[in-house]
Amino acid sequence: MNCNHHPDDSTLLSYGACSLPDALSMVVACHLAVCDHCHDKVADAEQIGFGLMEQEPVKSISKRSRDSMLAMLDEPVAEVCSETPIISDDLSDGDIPAPLRPMIGQWFSDLHWRTMAPGMKQFILPASQGKLRLLKIAPGTFMPSHGHSGSELTLVLKGSYSDELGRFSLGDVADVDPDMSHQPVADTHEGCICLIATDGPLRFKGLVPRLLQPFFQL
């Protein structure tokens, strides 16, 4: 797919480094599913990270592990069937992007949308870092003008919208600078569905608190 608007390189760098909050990562993952151009940049970011890690001070491995590795090399490979159910990523099988399907299924029309304001419905997704939601905007509807305190990523999943930055269609990502406020309007007859992630003020440090953080508070 030929997208006109991509995540900022700084966003792709952080994604490749595994350092993007998970709500934002999900938006990037959904974009990567349709954009080869960004794939290659993420691959570079990963490679930089692994290259750096390779040069870090090492941690010694016990002799027991080394011995057991040698022993395991002779073991026959058991035929394992994949534990994860196979989820179709065929577009004729649903209109929800593949990375979201394990959580919410295949079709936008099956979701329980909650009305926020006239012409605007939302569906909240759980995220452990940042906030993630789907927003459905009826044709011609203006979103309230807003700025943000942190990062915001918006991916168009259906229809298109326009704002001060331009026109965004299917697959496009708006990687909005927080200092900029904008007012999107759905600009086609079919309305617009977007996936929006914000890096909210709430973020826990360290792995364990992140795992324990309950879902969720929107």
Partner: peptide
């Protein structure tokens, strides 16, 4: 149920 788009790494 952790939201893990990380499994969507290419």
């Amino acid at each position: 149920d952790m939201l893990s788009p990380l499994n969507s790494y290419p």
